[in-house]
Design a protein around this nucleic acid. Structure first.
Length: 285
DNA sequence: TTGCTGCCCTGAAAGC
DNA sequence: TGCTTTCAGGGCAGCA
C-alpha cells in the first residue's frame, strides 16, 4: 500500500528515467482508470507530450508535460496526475515486455521504453490537467490536503491546533489527509506505537507532550521508511519492479496476536473509522 | 461543522 | 476437498 515514502520513492525513480522522454503512444486497457477528462481526450492530449519534472503532494504524483522537444511555441502541455491508491504501480519497462494481466494504462515512450500503470484492485486514477489550470481544480483531493509532514508548515503548533477540541480518535485524525498529507494506515499505526498513544484516544484528550511526541514519531517513521526506499514493510515495488529488503519489521502493523517487540503482550487489532488499527494494549494508553 | 458509513475492486485467506 | 464468506484499504459521496 503506497503511502508517502513509497510515493516519494516512485517520484525519484521517475524523475531519473522519464525526463525529456516523449510519449509516442497510449493504450488504455481499463477506461475507468482515467478520472479526467474522457479516456479519448486523455489519449489525445498526452500523445506527443514530453515528460518534465515529477512532483509529489501527499500521495498524489504530478508530472509537468511539455508540448514536445524542439517546439518553442506553447510553454506547457499541462500536467499528468496519478494516484496509486491501494495497489497501483508505475513501472518503467521495455516496450517488448509482456503486458501483465493488471496493466491498466500503457505509455509508449521514445527509445523502446514503456511507462506502465499496473493496478490489481483498480482504485488508482490518472488525470490530465490542461495548461494554465490549477491541478487542484481537476483533482479534487489535492485541494483539501493538509501540510506535508516535512514542511515548516507542519509545526508542533500546527498539529496542536489541528487536533484541539476534536472528539474523534487520534488514529482517525492521522488518516485524514486534511490534517496531514501522506500518512496511511501502516505509518499511522507505527507512529502511534512509537508515541505510546492508544489509537482510540480522543484528539482533545492529548496532552501537549503527547502531541509533541506524536509529531516527532510521524517524522521518524516516515524518514526511516524513506531511507529504505519506501520498502520498509509493504510488498511495494519500485519503478523497475524491485522489492525492498524488508530490513525493518513493523512494531504493530499486521502483527495481531503476535508478541509486542517491546513488552511481549499480544498485539491487538480493532476497527476504527472503517480501518484496522493495530496496537499494544500494554505500551499504548 | 463534524464525523461516520458504505462503496468501489480483486485475490488471498479463513471458515464451513 | 471445494465452495462461500471475509478481509484488506484511500478517497469520496451521502447522511445524521
Amino acid at each position: 500500500v503506497p503511502e508517502l515514502p513509497e510515493v516519494e520513492t516512485v517520484r525519484r525513480g521517475l524523475n531519473s528515467v522519464t525526463r525529456d522522454r516523449m510519449i509516442t503512444g497510449i493504450e488504455i486497457f481499463l477506461p475507468r482508470s482515467i478520472a479526467a477528462p474522457t479516456p479519448t481526450e486523455f489519449s489525445q492530449h498526452l500523445q506527443g507530450k514530453t515528460f518534465g519534472q515529477w512532483h509529489r503532494r501527499g500521495k498524489y504524483l504530478l508530472v509537468q508535460l511539455q508540448p514536445s522537444v524542439g517546439k518553442q511555441v506553447a510553454p506547457s502541455g499541462g500536467w499528468l496526475g496519478v494516484h496509486l491508491r491501494m495497489s497501483g504501480q508505475l513501472l518503467w519497462v521495455k516496450a517488448t515486455d509482456p503486458i501483465h494481466k493488471h496493466t491498466r494504462v500503457r505509455f509508449c515512450c521514445a527509445d523502446g521504453q514503456d511507462l506502465r500503470f499496473i493496478d490489481q484492485r483498480t482504485f488508482g486514477k490518472l488525470w490530465w490537467i490542461p495548461p494554465k489550470t490549477d491541478p487542484a481544480q481537476v483533482m479534487a483531493g489535492l485541494a483539501i490536503l493538509g501540510p506535508e509532514p516535512f514542511s515548516d508548515e507542519f509545526s508542533l503548533d500546527y498539529l496542536m491546533q489541528a487536533l484541539a477540541r476534536r472528539q474523534r480518535p487520534i488514529k482517525t485524525a492521522l488518516l485524514d489527509q486534511a490534517v496531514i498529507a501522506g500518512l496511511g494506515n501502516i505509518y499511522a499505526d507505527e507512529a502511534l506505537f512509537l508515541s505510546g498513544i492508544h489509537p482510540t484516544t480522543s484528539c482533545a484528550q492529548l496532552s501537549r507532550e503527547n502531541v509533541r511526541s506524536l509529531h516527532h514519531s510521524i517524522q521518524t517513521v516516515l524518514e526511516t521508511a524513506l531511507q529504505e526506499g519506501g520498502t520498509t514493510f509493504s510488498s511495494f515495488l519500485n519503478i523497475v519492479g524491485v522489492n525492498g529488503n524488508y530490513g525493518r519489521a513493523a512494531w504493530v502493523y499486521g502483527r495481531k496476536g503476535q508478541p509486542c517487540r517491546h513488552c511481549g503482550t499480544p498485539i491487538e487489532s480493532m476497527r476504527l473509522g472503517g480501518r484496522s488499527a493495530h496496537f499494544c494494549p500494554q505500551c499504548q494508553t
